[in-house]
Simulated scan of single mutants.
Amino acid sequence: MEAVMFRRILHANDGSEHAFHALSFAIAMAKQNNAELHMICVEEIDYMPEFIEEVREETGTAARRYHTVIQRARSLAEQSRIELHTHVVAGHPVRDIVDLVIKIKADLLVIGATGHSALYERLIGSRADRIVQLATCPVLVVK
């Protein structure tokens, strides 16, 4: 049987320590498979914007909020000599992560088991669970 080869790996990062732990796995997998590594950060929009300007404003906020996350992630990737392609969007985390898997044709999605919102996860259910259900590629959930 031929070994599974990952050509394009996507990692979702919300800035939490769980996410950075998952990033370490994603970097190792990218290095082992000589794969392209992408990272998505989603600034959640918890309302329906009426105007495109509101979306642009939220996206600008997301870029600023995730600036230090991206810097830290790039630094970790560079230490392993891995180029990191970053995607920062404002929207709905589950949908936008799953959409990017399709758009970039990811062979593997690497996510942390929990993120910032432990209360949300206890009340509504885990985003990780939803992503695993909806993703079109294998998902590695890192504890």
Rank of each mutant, 00 (worst) to 15 (best):
M5T: 13
H11P: 00
H11N: 13
D14R: 10
A19D: 04
H21I: 11
F25T: 03
A26W: 05
A26K: 05
I27K: 01
A28R: 15
A30N: 02
K31P: 05
Q32S: 11
N34C: 10
E36W: 01
H38W: 14
I40M: 11
I40E: 09
C41S: 15
P49Y: 04
F51W: 05
E58H: 09
T61W: 11
A62W: 05
A63S: 11
A63T: 07
A63M: 13
R65V: 08
Y66Q: 07
Y66A: 08
Y66E: 04
T68H: 12
T68L: 06
V69N: 03
I70R: 09
Q71D: 12
R72E: 14
A73P: 01
S80F: 06
R81S: 14
H87A: 01
H87L: 02
H87Y: 09
V88E: 00
V89H: 02
A90M: 06
P93C: 03
V94S: 05
L100Q: 07
V101C: 15
I102Q: 10
K105L: 05
A106F: 06
A106N: 03
A106W: 03
L109M: 09
T114L: 07
I124Q: 06
G125K: 08
Q133R: 15
V141C: 14
V141Q: 12
K143Q: 13
